[in-house]
Amino acid sequence: MNELSWSKVDDFFVDTLVDQDEVLLAALAANSEANLPAIDVSPAEGKLLHIYARMMGAKRILEIGTLGGYSTIWLAKALPEDGKVITLEFEPRHAEIAAKNIRHAGLESRVTILVGPALESLPKLASSAPFDLIFIDADKKNNPAYLEWALKYSRQGTVIIGDNVVRSGRVADENNQDENVAGLREFLQRQGQEKRLTATAIQTVGAKGWDGFSVAIVD
Rank of each mutant, 00 (worst) to 15 (best):
E148K: 15
D139I: 07
V171P: 00
P144F: 15
S168P: 01
K141S: 14
R170I: 12
D139G: 07
V165F: 11
G157K: 12
V166T: 11
D173R: 07
A138V: 03
D163M: 11
D163L: 04
Y153S: 05
V159D: 05
V159F: 13
N176P: 00
D132L: 06
V165I: 11
A145D: 02
Y153L: 06
A172S: 15
I136M: 07
Y153I: 04
T158V: 04
F131S: 05
S168H: 09
N143K: 06
K152E: 08
A145P: 00
N164K: 12
K140W: 13
D163H: 14
R155L: 02
G162D: 08
F131D: 03
V166P: 02
P130D: 11
S128L: 04
A129C: 03
R155W: 04
V159Y: 02
S168G: 05
A145S: 13
L125V: 01
L147Q: 09
Y146K: 05
D173A: 03
A126S: 10
S128G: 00
N175M: 03
R155V: 02
N164Q: 08
A150G: 13
T158L: 04
N176M: 01
I160Q: 04
G162Q: 12
F135C: 00
D163S: 05
D137L: 06
P144N: 12
N142H: 15
K152Q: 14
N142S: 15
R155K: 15
D137K: 13
A145K: 15
G169K: 13
A138Q: 05
I160M: 05
E148Y: 08
I160L: 02
L125N: 08
N164P: 10
A129D: 02
N176D: 15
R167E: 05
P130N: 14
Y146T: 07
I134H: 07
A126N: 04
A129Q: 06
A150F: 00
N142G: 07
G169W: 12
T158E: 01
Q156V: 10
L125R: 04
V159G: 03
T158W: 10
S128C: 09
L133Q: 11
A172R: 14
A129F: 10
I161V: 15
N164V: 08
A172M: 07
R170N: 14
V166K: 03
A138W: 09
E174C: 00
D139A: 11
V166E: 01
D163Y: 12
D132Q: 11
N175E: 05
V159N: 01
V159R: 00
F135A: 10
K152L: 07
D132A: 11
F131Y: 15
V171A: 12
E148C: 00
V165R: 10
T158M: 08
L133T: 01
V171S: 01
A126P: 00
K141F: 09
R170G: 05
E148V: 03
K124I: 01
G162L: 02
G157Q: 09
N142R: 08
S128A: 11
G169E: 04
W149F: 15
A138E: 09
K124R: 13
V165G: 06
L133D: 06
F131I: 09
A150I: 08
N143P: 02
S127F: 04
D132H: 10
D139T: 06
K152T: 02
L147M: 03
D173G: 07
L133K: 03
N164Y: 08
D173L: 11
S154N: 00
I136K: 14
P130F: 14
A150S: 15
K124E: 11
V166Q: 06
L147Y: 14
D173Y: 09
V171M: 12
